[in-house]
Write a protein that binds this DNA or RNA. Structure first.
Lengths: 251, 251
DNA sequence: CGCGCTATTGATGACGCTCAAGACCCGTGG
DNA sequence: CCACGGGTCTTGAGCGTCATCAATAGCGCG
């Protein structure tokens, strides 16, 4: 994320007509490129088709559906998950403001997972047709797409490695990754509210809901965290990091 | 795989000077496009830098290394795996003739996993520099890259879903997927030799080596398979399929 | 106010891991 | 040629982690 080929975009030049809340958006550079590339706001606005609000529990898109839009999360939160014919479901990601969703399946033209709002969520809806045209002709955007897909592959790998760790280690790692995610969007790294249920967390980490509860309770007992339902405060990042990076050394 | 945008390549036109063993290669279409696009064999041969042989246990590339070459497997077999700082390793794939390896990290310019030959393996080594140039300028090749990365993402999802199934179900599914893989390269779908160890299989499926052995033994007892060390014969595909697709209905 | 969803905590036991020992195979070197 | 060692495979015994089942409490929402 830090060394981005698009970072040279002359922000100041454009800033007079950019919506204020776009400035901190994770897709800002992408959007700006689309915009500057074509020189006028009208195109930008044709690409970002419209803003939409999803309520808690509503689906942005479903696995297998033809891909119509990309979504940039402006606020709220979204979980993505995959499912099988026999009804198994697995949560594969939680997403917050600034993230771009729906791109991973650009080749098959079908969404390859479900995306579901876990809270009131506001998004920018980006028409895939126009976007793709731009991908084809602009190697900077092309690279941005590669980057997003690479990140997706790497994230899958991280999830696979979770299988190697026990419940405590997984949950500690999860809390730390949330901490980083919040820090990245200028929120507190040590105190935040979870938008997802215990059940979702369990599913994501490959644990039962009850196990997640128990580990939360255990962490609470040991004063590592203060957990009041979905409000979490991390009291001992150092220790959490120890646990997350293979507890057997310390415990 | 079946509906490929490159399938219109006029094979006959080129066939007089194509090496015979390229015809059945999974990367054939990709190679041919590179070739036809540029009209002469010399370029093709500059892109496919050279052929190489890896012995069992040798690494084609390592995670984190700068990406120099792509590899097309001509014969033999390769396992890919990821590892963590604390020494955990997870096998994420087994690959056979015709597969293209090393592309998934095209954006970061570093390999994002290890690739290790599990048998004597012959490959075509493709220089990444020239390849990338072609990607940038050819939307058919571009699309091919998207396709490979998409497949990687989907495969990651499949592996994650394994977590939802028990040991028998996972192994049955694994055997069936091997069966399909062999069928695809014109080998027997019901009788084949495994190139990977029990330990590798276990790691791949998220099971202990011993558990894999036990399930093999159990399948053997129930006459589902005949397993003599690494030589496997599937005697009852139907039943294996039942097990693989959620055994609880039948057992 | 009552329904449903979520969270919590307890009791129980199963599945698969760990440890251990032995068999087998193969390549190496004496 | 055989002996040796290392790697792989197999099987057994025992245990631990975590899933499952169940009951209850809390909360938001219609």
């Amino acid at each position: 994320m830090s060394e981005n080929p698009l970072k040279v975009v002359p922000v100041a030049m454009a800033s007079d007509s950019v919506p204020l809340d776009c400035r901190n958006c994770g897709a800002y550079k992408l959007c700006m490129t689309l915009w500057l590339k074509n020189g006028d706001v009208s195109l930008f606005e044709r690409v970002v088709k419209k803003k939409r609000i999803f309520k808690r529990g509503e689906m942005l898109y479903r696995m297998g559906q033809p891909m119509e839009y990309l979504y940039v999360i402006r606020g709220g939160s979204v979980k993505t998950c995959i499912s099988t014919d026999d009804g198994q479901v697995r949560v594969i990601g939680f997403h917050v403001a600034g993230e771009l969703l729906g791109l991973n399946a650009i080749e098959s033209r079908e969404y390859n997972c479900n995306a579901c709002a876990t809270a009131i969520t506001s998004v920018c809806e980006v028409s895939i047709g126009r976007f793709e045209e731009l991908v084809r002709n602009d190697s900077a955007i092309q690279n941005e797409v590669f980057k997003i897909m690479s990140a997706e592959i790497r994230h899958g790998h991280d999830l696979l490695l979770f299988g190697k760790y026990n419940a405590e280690e997984r949950l500690a790692a999860f809390l730390l990754s949330l901490s980083r995610q919040f820090a990245k969007c200028h929120c507190s790294a040590t105190e935040f509210s979870l938008s997802m249920s215990r059940s979702d967390i369990g599913n994501y980490l490959g644990l039962a809901e009850e196990t997640v509860c128990r580990i939360f309770a255990r962490f609470q007992d040991e004063a590592l965290i203060s957990s009041e339902c979905r409000h979490i405060k991390l009291n001992n990042l150092e220790r959490l990091r120890q646990i997350a990076s293979k507890a057997n050394v310390t415990a």
